[in-house]
Design a protein around this nucleic acid. Structure first.
Lengths: 252, 252
DNA sequence: GATTTCAGCTTGTCTAGAGATGTTGGGATC
DNA sequence: GATCCCAACATCTCTAGACAAGCTGAAATC
């Protein structure tokens, strides 16, 4: 009954990983031709469909593209992220350089200020979480710093009844963070919806983010949904919109 | 040599389209089980790998997901967009409802004010486009309206030398718009990079967008790259950040 | 030299099998 | 009633072919 680590790895997966490793190592550069179906058949001693499947993995991930009658090539433009927004940075347009990961799992970010409390959530958030009138939410308020500078204020709302007794109510949630604890409780977030808008800072936001006067902030609202469609977390984030630029790539 | 309309459609494609059509029609609803490999083999008289390929199309598009040993199901959460940001709307958070498509091909949007001119581009944009000092850019300035209300100011910069003589320099670019003309000139945009930030409105922006006092605007900078990696267009857009909310879904 | 044709390469589509692996539910057992 | 076992069924992996369709470059032709 124990979930075993794994059996054997499928051939096509191993071949795909080999290719990816070589691309990462610079053995094949953007625009270069990759070993084709026939090459892989000979090298690994597999059938054509298996070689195709391996190359299909790389194509599905946007790493390679096949040109019929010609070959398979490393893509010139590779997606910065697979799906959704992955980074906030000022790389191209000369803003302050920094990185913000959508899943807040970035190693560069550290928590500076932290408070965990049970209190009523704003009406709109309570509605999203399906809370009854007066029913409390677990609120994790954090300030993230990057290289010593404050960059992000985050308020995370979870139904208190849902997380009662779990480590989420501790300041230290443990490895994997909030989402790992939610998963343990059988409410693994599998779908996210984010919205961004902008406004002038309110209350002590300008102070906590060390904003220059007249600088608007980004507001990021994120709702995390579990498998059954239930909203299990609402995250409200406030970012300095002058220093931090939302960046993403996509294909047409 | 003439590009023929098409030969025959691959079987897996036809099967995939059949399934998608039935899903769109509501014959299969989110969470429902779809015909599996064996079903499709029997129904269409195809081999297993062909049936798998058809189902693979739907999985690749995020429409369906397979559960090993169980079956193939219509996904509960289907992506609003495949890649990149697709919509601006106020659906969930109660802002003004509207739609803005990332490729500006939305039917709901109409151009209200328009001017086309050749002039020098700002230094940063000129650098991105690879323009020499004093070299002019073709600038298309537009205001888009939605239901009679101004929603978007757009300045599109293209290298003047690149588009000389094409319809891009006309107010009416013709069917397909700017990108179709660029494609005809051999500079089809295949890759886009966008960045968003926010600031208070400048100049006559507040007036042109009919902004309430104190409302910040979103700035969207988009760079379009051609196959060879050359930047062929820079688009600067200004949006009302209070009325319009950037919305997107993504999978974890 | 310029053009056309075509052989040989590539990826794309498809078949008819086979066994592996994961899930489920019912029946036998305790 | 609770537990265990297993057959049936689903997807997943893989094979060894076959032909179609698109691209390229060199040879043949003009």
């Amino acid at each position: 009954m124990t979930s075993h680590p794994r059996a054997t790895q499928p051939k096509y997966q191993r071949i795909a990983e080999d290719l990816k490793r070589e691309i990462d190592a610079g053995r094949y550069r953007p625009g270069d031709r990759l070993p084709g179906e026939n090459d892989l058949m000979a090298t690994y001693g597999v059938a054509r469909m298996t070689a195709r499947q391996a190359l299909g993995v790389l194509q599905g991930e946007g790493i390679a593209e096949a040109r019929r009658g010609v070959g398979v090539f490393v893509r010139e433009f590779r997606p910065i992220r697979r799906r959704g927004i992955q980074r906030l940075s000022g790389r191209t347009w000369g803003g302050g350089a920094s990185v913000w990961s959508a899943d807040i799992a970035s190693r560069e970010l550290a928590v500076d200020q932290l408070s965990v409390a049970e209190r009523e959530a704003p009406e709109q958030i309570a509605a999203v979480l399906g809370l009854k009138a007066g029913e409390p939410a677990c609120v994790r308020s954090r300030r993230f710093v990057l290289d010593g500078k404050p960059v992000l204020l985050s308020d995370s709302y979870l139904p208190a009844a849902l997380v009662a007794g779990s480590r989420i109510t501790d300041p230290d949630t443990g490895p994997g963070g909030t989402y790992a604890r939610l998963a343990e409780l059988g409410h693994k977030p599998v779908h996210f919806q984010e919205q961004i808008r902008s406004r002038m800072p309110l209350g002590d936001e300008a102070e906590r983010l060390a904003l220059a006067p007249g600088t608007p902030v980004f507001l990021v609202h994120r709702i995390a949904f579990a498998e059954d469609g239930q909203a299990v977390e609402v995250n409200e984030m406030v970012l300095d919109s002058a220093s931090y630029i939302l960046e993403y790539d996509f294909d047409a």
